[in-house]
């Protein structure tokens, strides 16, 4: 009933000879106001907790340690001149590149292996292979830490069984870097696996059948059918993983805390140590901000890949 009177009320001005589009225009405007209001919490989160902190970070990074004086880009130049920070840059890139290549290769192999399995058993195996990715890294890295323990290392015990000497897993710079990359790979490979698996499943069987009839061998099918079809998803996954690995914190923080002699520090852990633990907030902010240019490049590349994929309608 209330509805009915609303109609009547709405109709009166419309028939009273006003410009016809008036009410519907107003409705459209009300609609976009409503839409804006519904997106407002999102806007608040992005503006208040991403954009504002970003500019605040820039401001912070240009102050002196006690945050009393504007020092321009001194913090940045200071960092660039420091050997530790040069190590951080080198290590971040090294870890990101090697770990991502390892993850991508393992993920690719596992996806293919899973794809080759009969559908019945696939789910079970996939479930087991996803475990590293499901456990919070801050928690699983504790187990790795314990496995690498200098006196009680279960790995070293196994090596001793084969007569190999104890490995200083976290005590030696080279081994510590290897350990960090290993744990990173262990944690991230399942993600690649499921992304590739989804991509593999989306390649139509007819393409393989057509290729088989055209005389393609297994390798040729991979080269000319699978890889081109997966190219986009591979690049998106790789770029995304580069960001995550590059900006990693949990694994290094727990496993080595940057040691030995800062040989495993990443931007994240170094910023934490400088900014939070040593209390030099501006310098810490500057360390973090150094990540930004590289992240921005990756982000733009990912966005391009995603947009292209959307356009292709896949």
């Amino acid at each position: 009933m209330a509805d009915g009177s609303a109609i009547a009320a709405g109709r009166v001005p419309a028939t009273a000879g006003q410009p016809r589009t008036g009410t519907l225009k107003r409705m459209a405007r009300r609609r976009s106001t409503l839409a804006f209001l519904m997106a407002l919490p999102l806007l608040a989160v992005i503006a208040g907790l991403v954009i504002y902190p970003f500019f605040y970070a820039i401001e912070l990074s240009m102050l002196n340690k006690r945050m009393t004086r504007f020092v321009g880009i001194d913090n940045f130049t200071f960092l660039l001149g420091r050997e530790t920070f040069q190590l951080v840059i080198f290590q971040s890139v090294l870890f990101a590149v090697t770990a991502v290549i390892a993850k991508a290769l393992i993920g690719f192999v596992l996806a293919h292996v899973l794809h080759a399995l009969p559908a019945k058993g696939q789910r079970k195996w996939r479930g087991m292979l996803l475990v590293p990715w499901v456990i919070p890294p801050a928690v699983s890295t504790l187990a790795w830490w314990w496995l690498f323990d200098p006196s009680y290392s279960a790995f070293n015990w196994m090596l001793a069984v084969f007569g190999a000497g104890p490995v200083p897993w976290l005590g030696d710079a080279g081994w510590a870097r290897f350990a960090v990359i290993l744990v990173n790979t262990w944690y991230g490979a399942p993600f690649f696996m499921i992304m590739y698996l989804a991509a593999l499943k989306s390649v139509p069987d007819q393409l393989y059948e057509a290729a088989a009839i055209d005389g393609a061998t297994g390798i040729q099918k991979l080269r000319y059918v699978t890889l081109p079809m997966m190219r986009n998803i591979i690049s998106i996954t790789v770029l995304f993983s580069l960001i995550v690995t590059f900006a990693n914190f949990d694994i290094v923080r727990i496993l080595t805390n940057g040691g030995p002699q800062d040989r495993t520090h990443l931007f994240g852990t170094y910023a934490f140590q400088v900014g939070i633990q040593s209390g030099d907030i501006p310098l810490g902010a500057a360390v973090s901000l150094f990540m930004f240019p590289l992240l921005a490049v990756f982000a733009v590349l990912i966005l391009r890949g995603v947009n292209q994929r959307t356009k292709e309608g896949l």
Partner: peptide, 21 residues
């Protein structure tokens, strides 16, 4: 588009200003 880009912002980039805030 902005939503997607913020998804790519890692937590290690902004934790220090957030610490101050």
């Amino acid at each position: 588009t902005g939503v997607f880009l913020t998804y790519l912002v890692p937590e290690t980039l902004l934790f220090i200003p957030l610490f101050q805030i």
